[in-house]
């Protein structure tokens, strides 16, 4: 039993990273109906920015992380302006292909800049060890991950529910034209959505680097893909769905690994995606939008 609980603890920790990243996918999809495949690369860059801040400029991580969040936010807005905005009224498939292109460009660009080899995340002595409850250990890293994730999730919920930006985002995601005719600056609102999603991805990237102690230019590809699965699982476009999906994927993955089927963990994650798409294509939290004839 304690072994099982231990796996759940690891799962929650990994899952919160997926949740943070999944939120970016789901927010952007909700507002411009685009699967932003470059999102995984944003998380990679968030991790790189933070580590370079720490190593090259000797900035403490507590400062490096917010700086990296701001940089990623700007970058997310920049990607939208350059790559997606010109295609806003183009067929959706064009924007999707562009997103794939941006993703490949960014990961290869970073390979060129910093080399393909894995870099070690500096160790933080304060994060070594954990609380021990009988046979279950809760690593400090996991606590940091969960706390930081919860802070982000709560802040996001407050922004979406209680501020003018959040109301504008909800309005734009329902009906862009009606929103702009009610005085909402749609382009700005979309930019802000990209900024928030990218800042969350930066946090996800840094937490990934802390938990797995390494960074590399393609780290965002598979992590991003799994977070995307999480977003679809929860119902793409729905924020609580993305959170739930993220935690679910993290737990399932760690249980598979913990019970001796480590090689199968990705297969299980994507297997779940296939089953969900077959049984409930709109996702667990999704509403059934049957088309009227």
């Amino acid at each position: 039993m304690s072994y099982f609980i231990q796996q759940i603890v690891y799962g929650l920790s990994a899952g919160s990273i997926y949740a943070l990243i999944a939120l970016g996918y789901t927010m952007v999809y909700g507002i411009v109906k685009l699967i932003n495949f470059a999102h995984g690369e944003v998380l990679m860059m968030g991790a790189y920015f933070t580590i370079f801040g720490i190593i090259s400029f000797n900035i403490p991580i507590i400062l490096a992380l917010p700086i990296s969040m701001v940089l990623c936010a700007l970058l997310g807005m920049f990607i939208d302006r350059v790559a997606y905005k010109p295609l806003r009224n183009a067929p959706r498939i064009s924007a999707l292909i562009t997103a794939l292109g941006v993703s490949m460009f960014l990961s290869n660009f970073f390979k060129l800049l910093f080399g393909a080899e894995k870099r070690k995340m500096p160790d933080f002595p304060a994060l070594k060890g954990g609380y021990v409850f009988g046979d279950v250990t809760i690593p400090y890293k996991a606590i940091l991950t969960l706390v930081l994730t919860l802070v982000c999730l709560i802040t996001l919920q407050i922004i979406v529910r209680k501020t003018k930006v959040g109301r504008a985002m909800r309005a734009v995601s329902e009906d862009k034209q009606a929103a702009q005719l009610m005085g909402v600056n749609v382009d700005l609102t979309i930019s802000i959505t990209f900024a928030i999603g990218s800042a969350l991805a930066a946090v996800g990237g840094v937490l990934y680097a802390i938990n797995y102690s390494q960074i590399f230019p393609t780290m965002g590809t598979l992590t991003g893909l799994k977070a995307f699965v999480a977003a679809v699982l929860g119902g793409i476009g729905i924020l609580p769905g993305a959170m739930f999906g993220g935690f679910l994927i993290g737990i399932v993955e760690n249980l598979t690994k913990g019970y001796g089927a480590g090689g199968w963990s990705n297969a299980v994650v994507f297997g779940i995606l296939i089953i969900v798409l077959l049984v409930k294509p709109e996702g667990i939290f999704g509403k059934n939008t049957r088309e009227k004839v």
Binding site: K164, R167, R170, A171, A178, M182, G183
Partner: peptide, 21 residues
């Protein structure tokens, strides 16, 4: 009719105050 259907009645009206905030 093009209301923001999945928002509350009050939030629909609040969106329209956006440009004054």
């Amino acid at each position: 009719i093009r209301l923001f259907k999945d928002m509350t009645v009050l939030d629909n009206v609040k969106v329209a105050f956006h440009h004054k905030m």
